[in-house]
Amino acid sequence: MDFRLTDDQRALRQGVRDLLEGRFGREALRATLDRADGTDTAGGSADGGSATGAGGGGVGRSAGGGRVLDRELWRALGAAGFFALRLPEAAGGVGLGLPEAVLAFEEAGRVLLPGPLIATHLAAGTVPGAATGETVVTAVDGGLVEWLDEADIVLGDIAGAEPLAPVDPLTPLHRLPARGGPPHRSPAPGEPRDARTPDRLLVSLLTAAEQLGSAARTCETAVQHARTREQFGRPIGAFQAVQHLCADMLARLETARAAVYAASVTADPADVAAARLLADEAAVRGARDCLQVHGGMGFTWESDVHLHLKRAWTRTHRAGGGTQSEEELAEDLLAGTA
């Protein structure tokens, strides 16, 4: 099976990168952070309420009091086909497949694009306005809900949801009370091994794609800093300890990339689980190693490195993260020996 990108896929990836870097470059990222922190009121007050549905919605306020989600950018993504990428052309979509969606979400991860991207993407065929970016959709994911206050439609039961102080300033979270029941269920006797919720599988894979993009950006950032930052009259990249950090980042990144791209082609639950584990590791450890390369500078608010680490940590709590993927891989291995 050939997992290499086609010319059309490379063009798609470059097009999404150009769009996001043009509409959500570093200046836009920092401006969004200022609004989330309540230090910038240029975006206007958040007194207006948003529409609700399928479980409710919120009043569209960030912790700092200003709107964080850029609705204009959201509509621009819709106009570019980001949310309707896998929707059939007959239904007004782009008509592409899961590999192309993975490439698009990888680019979103590179720039730390905020918002419930995956939930809106998955709702494009069922929720009016989701495909065009006119409607912001979020969904219950385990015991957490992202972007509850700024969503127009919330899929799932949000009764008793309580706001959390998020680690990532650009991922507002609400926690739901325990509903009972195990978070992961093994297939019953005689049940097909792939009988898992399709949306849950897609959430895990697209999250892995975002983690992959973040890992790529932190790897590039570390290498660039190592080439330009000097100590004792030499670039710090000349020191073996820094070289090892950068080499390990690249090795984890490319291993995860191969796994994520392969899983996007096969859509096999075991492949997705492996890809998710590798991508989570590449994103979290890559950001931590990038902090090491930057030294104390990486922990300052002015640096973007800590933002990648915080977002990577937050993504690991989505469906398919950590123990869930490990259990699915273990089940697959045990099934192969039965």
Rank of each mutant, 00 (worst) to 15 (best):
V127K: 03
P183S: 06
I153H: 05
L148Q: 03
I153Q: 13
P116V: 00
R71H: 11
A151P: 13
A208P: 03
F105N: 06
T120Q: 08
L164D: 05
P192R: 09
L155F: 03
A119P: 10
L69D: 01
L170W: 03
A130W: 05
R185A: 12
P182A: 14
T171W: 04
V140G: 12
V140I: 09
D152S: 12
A108V: 06
H184E: 12
R200S: 11
E72I: 14
V94I: 14
R67K: 07
G129F: 05
T132Q: 04
V111Q: 10
L87K: 01
G181H: 12
V154F: 01
V154P: 06
T197E: 13
P99Q: 05
E89S: 13
G92S: 04
E150F: 07
A131P: 12
R200F: 09
V137G: 09
G93C: 04
G78W: 10
F83C: 11
E210N: 03
V127M: 08
L117W: 04
L144Q: 14
G125T: 06
L164H: 06
L176S: 05
L170F: 10
A108W: 01
F83P: 10
A151F: 12
R179L: 10
E89Q: 15
P128V: 02
P169I: 00
G180K: 01
E210A: 03
L206S: 08
P198Q: 08
A209M: 01
P187Y: 03
A161I: 01
R200M: 05
V137H: 14
L176V: 07
D194M: 02
L164S: 08
A104T: 09
R175C: 01
L164A: 08
A195C: 03
E210Q: 14
R193W: 03
R71T: 11
V136Y: 13
G143E: 11
G160M: 09
H174C: 08
G180T: 08
T197H: 14
S186E: 15
H121Q: 09
L164W: 07
F83Q: 07
A159Y: 02
L112Y: 07
D141C: 14
G115M: 06
R86W: 02
D168C: 06
I118F: 13
P116E: 05
L103S: 01
L122K: 09
A195Q: 08
G160F: 13
R75F: 06
G156N: 11
A188W: 12
L96P: 09
V154I: 12
V203G: 00
P163W: 09
L96H: 08
V136K: 14
L170N: 07
L206R: 09
A208D: 04
L117I: 11
P182E: 15
L77D: 11
D199G: 12
S186R: 15
G92H: 06
A80T: 11
R175M: 04
E150M: 06
G142N: 14
G115A: 07
H174Y: 15
G115L: 07
H184M: 09
A165S: 13
V136R: 14
G190W: 05
P163K: 03
R86I: 01
D157M: 05
L96E: 11
P183I: 05
R193Y: 10
A108N: 00
L155I: 13
A119E: 15
E146K: 09
